[in-house]
Design a protein around this nucleic acid. Structure first.
Lengths: 355, 355
DNA sequence: TTGTAGGCGTTATCAT
DNA sequence: ATGATAACGCCTACAA
């Protein structure tokens, strides 16, 4: 490994000057800089990151912790995000350190790693409504950026999130405009913040239109095809069955479509289906039969912003300047249509009580 | 952050003594050691890993690179292994650094990271028959351990692998003993070493029994349910259809079972199915209908050995002492049974030629 | 048994 | 514009 000293010796300079030349300090003679750069390239010089880290106090390592088996089953996007983050971080010569924990206590691994003090910060995924990790890291004063956000409002830490409430409202608006009055909601697990946010948006959009959805038509579960199929199959046997399904993911929608098929219902003729689409390559909503109407917000779009926020946070930026919320696109395809004739009636408060 | 110097000052000792006391050097006074440890704990001392790394020349970081999108689609076990490795490495206070690459050139990310010289070594997954990464790292003299192995023989680098050839032989033996003479093989992608190894074992086991399987009944493709279903559906329409399927994964077997169901065939009455099972929690072969006969080798069992090998390799152990091959367990369940009467005939050379 | 001093490779401060 | 020197925190000869 060639080091600064080697280059310096070769050129009859001091290591300090070589360092300055390589790091673009303005005071070095332009000609000197050229020579230094040439030799550095020739000798295939790479700065020793460990040494840089020792002096800078930074490790250049960002941690991401998988809550297994929770995340594996619940968050198929986790690795897509990890992959994107690692690429982006590489642009800053930073590394993504991966840890997995199957501990009961989801904070435990953070506690351990914070104690080691070897990471510059953390990126958190899939926050829950009252996320313990966020509380711990905040208290510990450790930099972190959240993909998503806990609670319903704007928190006081850096985050990148989609507007989950708005997304549910958009979906309800579309279905309502098509005449649907009985809209079921197959949401994600209730403990996740995004699910709470979507539920909030769903409820408020219904309320704004004088609609109501009985609790038996609002479910919370993992984003899986099974869940969609079973829940829909059950609901479709109801005497006042939903005419439309809002699904938390395309996987769930796939299950609903299957249930509809088995029940002999055509989509969108008898039933409308809309889902939120994270645009994960494996499940392409366009290729569904029929092509799925979705609110779309590619999860990989979060990687760049999350990385930038982390870098700026480490550079001392204010949390309040590192908060982004984007809105999902509404993409109308073939799985949504006008409410079937004779099904224009809504659920009423009574049916809620009767529930 | 409290450092050695702080502890030393507090005790009126030198940093050197404190370091020795903490690192278990035999020469320090036991009483001194006690005091040092007590104070260290009291002050919540953690050694600065960066500093340790600078002096030791080791970074304590092991790299693992995802070939996306290849691995995501092709190797569902990748993340299970990553999770296991990170836990094991943590026992050695080492970290797993994750990178993703969608580059054409699978060696490119290794080239980049090797140049940065910030990782101690790499763990490679899913080697291909002539793996470029292995060739590069070998030439570069960078430590690495392979989960699997390239080629058919015993290579000259550290690895942990299951005996893929034996596994295929075991399966053929079981089926043959049950009277099956027409065994189809739904293998993994041909470029992967494990697929080549299993094919080799499959062929040799057939040959040893005077059997032959026409090439149209040997397929190579990704470990997906679709593949299993389509391939089986096609093969089952053949005038001399297979009476048994050997599948490279339980996912493929799931597809075969579905195809059998659609074709009105009962398993194991009309058709036997055996698969190799990596024992990934998501797909539990026991829960199949019928419960699946498998060769079983939990992929997570590789994590401990891979980590140990890496650590020992970095400590200077010989490659030849770091090679492990384990055999899979044969677990006979409900998906295999005697060949149906009237189907005891095998394929012959003629049908191969006719193929 | 403990202390001193030098070094790991880089950056930053202060001279020159 | 460049050089010497110290510092980052730890480890390890070597000295005492």
């Amino acid at each position: 490994m060639t080091k600064l000293k080697d280059i310096a010796a070769r050129l009859g300079l001091s290591p300090a000057t070589v360092s300055r030349a390589l790091n673009g300090f303005p005071e070095v003679n332009e000609q000197t800089r050229q020579r230094v750069q040439a030799v550095a390239r020739a000798m295939n010089y790479r700065p020793n990151q460990i040494a840089q880290k020792l002096v800078s106090g930074r490790s250049g390592m960002i941690g991401m912790i998988l809550r297994s088996p929770v995340d594996v089953a619940t968050d198929p996007s986790f690795f897509e995000v990890m992959a994107g983050l690692s690429s982006r971080l590489a642009d800053y010569d930073m590394d993504l350190v991966f840890h997995a924990s199957n501990a009961e206590d989801e904070v435990a691994p953070y506690r351990r790693l914070v104690a080691k003090a070897t990471l510059d910060g953390f990126i958190l995924n899939a926050p829950t409504v009252e996320d313990q990790r966020i509380q711990f890291l905040t208290a510990a004063g450790v930099p972190f950026v959240v993909h998503g956000r806990a609670g319903l409002g704007v928190p006081d830490y850096p985050f990148f999130d989609i507007d989950n409430a708005a997304l549910a409202r958009q979906s309800v608006a579309l279905l309502h405009d098509l005449g649907h009055r009985r809209i079921a909601f197959l949401n994600g697990p209730a403990n996740y913040a995004y699910a709470a946010q979507r539920l909030s948006g769903f409820q408020s959009a219904l309320a704004a239109r004088g609609l109501v959805t009985p609790t038996r038509f609002i479910r919370h579960d993992r984003l899986a095809e099974d869940y969609g199929q079973r829940a829909a199959a059950t609901m479709l046997t109801d005497t006042a069955a939903p005419t439309a399904f809002l699904c938390a993911s395309t996987l769930i929608a796939a299950g609903v479509l299957r249930a509809a098929r088995k029940a002999g219902l055509s989509v969108p003729g008898d039933l409308s289906v809309i889902a939120h689409d994270d645009a994960i390559p494996q499940f392409r909503a366009v290729n569904f039969e029929p092509a799925l109407t979705v609110t779309r917000a590619p999860i990989r779009d979060a990687c760049g912003p999350l990385t930038d926020k982390m870098v700026r946070l480490l550079d001392g930026a204010q949390s309040s300047d590192l908060q982004t919320m984007v809105t999902a696109d509404l993409i109308v395809r073939q799985s949504t249509g006008p409410v079937p004739v004779g099904q224009q009636g809504g659920w009423n408060e009574t049916s809620v009580v009767a529930d």
